[in-house]
Design a protein around this nucleic acid. Structure first.
Lengths: 142, 142
DNA sequence: CTGAATCCGTGGCGATACTG
DNA sequence: CAGTATCGCCACGGATTCAG
């Protein structure tokens, strides 16, 4: 019998859960597109290839580090392609792959749902924030 | 004109971008569902209402803090409803709202896409990781 | 022009202890 | 049972600097 069932069992369950999540395709997808810069890069590339400096200018608020890092991840995942043209100042173009365009369609679906339902969410937030100050609001009915 | 065009212009652009993103419905949606625990809670509630302790047990790896915090956010956004039954030990049930079920459908769409395409992503990663060690791989064609 | 490497501040998250 | 409050860690992102 384990001397420390409580803490250790919980830890084991957590580890199992993490392992499950690490393998979960949906989780991996979310980890990708939940990145702020990734979504902006995909959007910026939606109307054709762009150079590194173009992306940097279009996305504006992004740091070099995050732009490069995000592009690397996207390239590694096969969502964008990277083309180097070795001129005097080197030129690098990034372009969506077929897989990347497929991902954009998913994001388009999400975008449409969000735009249809965001007002309801905002209304719910407003109602919640109002209710939190009134005492009887959160009491329940038996 | 401005003595510090470079840094300040960049800062202004960043602020404008942040403001835009703060209003972007798709961004808000992603901020919600990109949360690890939120997705698990929504999944756990997909087959009917659950009590706080049930959720805590089902999700296993979650801390009380994050479970409560995530549930509060979901409630505030109108995605789950919270019902308090004031017995001797208080009882609280959480249930998906109509809006929450709508969100689940979106997540189902994402899940299906992820499962269909995850192998291609993994293949791309494997190819990338292999290529990064070979010298000629990332050199370009002019 | 494109990118790698480094330092460092911030905040999210988990663990713990306490309450009604 | 269902939270709330507090603290510490550390991963993430930004700014900066160096390089090909």
């Amino acid at each position: 019998m384990a001397t420390q069932t409580a803490a250790q069992r919980r830890e084991a369950a957590k580890a199992a859960y993490d392992a499950f999540l690490a393998c979960c395709p949906a989780r991996q997808l979310l980890d990708t597109i939940s990145d702020k810069w990734v979504t902006l890069i995909l959007a910026a590339l939606s109307d054709g290839p762009k150079r590194y400096s173009e992306l940097s200018r279009i996305i504006a608020g992004v740091s070099q580090k995050m732009l490069t890092q995000s592009l690397r991840t996207l390239e590694r995942d096969g969502l964008v392609s990277r083309t180097v043209t070795p001129r005097v100042p080197v030129r690098v173009d990034y372009e969506l792959t077929t897989l990347g365009r497929g991902l954009q369609e998913i994001m388009g679906t999400m975008k449409r749902w969000a735009e249809r339902n965001i007002e309801e969410v905002h209304a719910a937030r407003a109602a919640y924030d109002t209710r939190e100050n009134s005492p009887a609001g959160r009491a329940a009915a038996g």
